[in-house]
Design a protein around this nucleic acid. Structure first.
Length: 281
DNA sequence: TGCCAGGCCTTCC
DNA sequence: GGAAGGCATGGC
């Protein structure tokens, strides 16, 4: 099968797929392999070119462009945010080209419910297990892959079935959210179009979704770059960089980010997150 | 063994 | 409105 090529600017595939925003991409030799919408994708980067193979090649440029947010000018964004301060400049320079994906809304909600008080390898394991058990099978090069299930596919899945997928105490939260969707108590398509404050409020109404999880969903699925998720890593690095290593509440950290990082807070957050986890800062 | 992981819920004040 | 305790599970 023939690869298609896409020219990119200010784009780093590794940073984008390994920064912790997504849980199902796997590195296989030179390719990253994952699932977008209805298809398996193999993608690699060489300098400013992306090379892509899909199990379904229809409309593939548009699918890739939307998912990887290629129409947004990150050059412009990064040029702006390195002016914020020296810490931000250093972090962003280390991981230039890190982009925010537009991941499936439902998958992102469930994935980040699972993320609470959990670690990334185990989150991946659980999300993959749910996909394998309940998602649609897709094939590429004789290998089997699974789409993340739709709410309808999860309609009859029980709390204890989720527990079997390794999600622990979050089983009932997933069940509750799926039921709210299939019973049409909430409408994800409608929510996705709401303004950020309204959308966040509606996300917070879901079981297992608190401020941090809601912010991650807003960033990694909805492209709302002004939110600033505060987890244990970000708490640590923010205290170190901006509070002289002294104690600081999440509220104080949030306030600092809102005041100083403004509408770019989410982008700055993700660079800081990658940098501290990799020991780059 | 005890602590931690992309926190949240419940209870209590 | 905020503080404290509990929570599944695996890796270190």
């Amino acid at each position: 099968m023939k690869e298609i090529q896409l020219k990119v600017d200010c784009f780093n595939l590794k940073y984008t797929l390994e920064c912790g925003q997504c849980f199902r991409w796997k590195k296989e030799e030179q390719y990253y392999v994952g699932v977008i919408k209805d298809r398996v994708i193999k993608i690699r980067q060489d300098k400013d070119m992306l090379y892509i193979i899909g199990s379904n090649m229809d409309n593939i440029k548009n699918v890739i462009t939307e998912y990887f947010n290629l129409d947004t000018d990150y050059n412009e964004i990064e040029k702006r945010i390195i002016l914020v301060d020296e810490n931000v400049k250093r972090a962003v320079s280390n991981t230039t080209g890190l982009r925010f994906l537009k991941q499936d809304f439902f998958e992102t909600i469930i994935s980040y419910i699972i993320s609470a008080n959990n670690n990334i390898p185990r989150i991946s394991k659980s999300v993959n297990e749910i996909s394998k058990r309940y998602g649609t099978k897709v094939e590429l090069d004789g290998e089997e892959y699974y789409l993340f299930p739709t709410p309808e596919q999860l309609k009859n899945v029980r709390v204890e079935d989720y527990r079997q997928c390794g999600v622990g105490f979050r089983d009932k939260y997933i069940y509750d959210t799926v039921q709210k969707i299939v019973n049409k108590e909430i409408d994800l398509d409608k929510m996705y179009e709401e303004d950020t404050q309204t959308l966040k409020k509606e996300l917070l109404a879901l079981m297992g979704v608190g401020p941090k999880v809601a912010d991650c969903i807003l960033l990694f699925s909805c492209s709302r770059f002004e939110v600033f998720p505060i987890d244990t890593w970000i708490e640590k690095i923010m205290r170190k960089l901006y509070f002289d290593n002294k104690e600081a509440t999440k509220k104080q950290i949030q306030h600092y980010a809102d005041e100083n990082f403004k509408s770019d807070a989410g982008i700055i957050q993700q660079h800081l997150f990658y940098n501290i986890r990799e020991g780059m800062i």
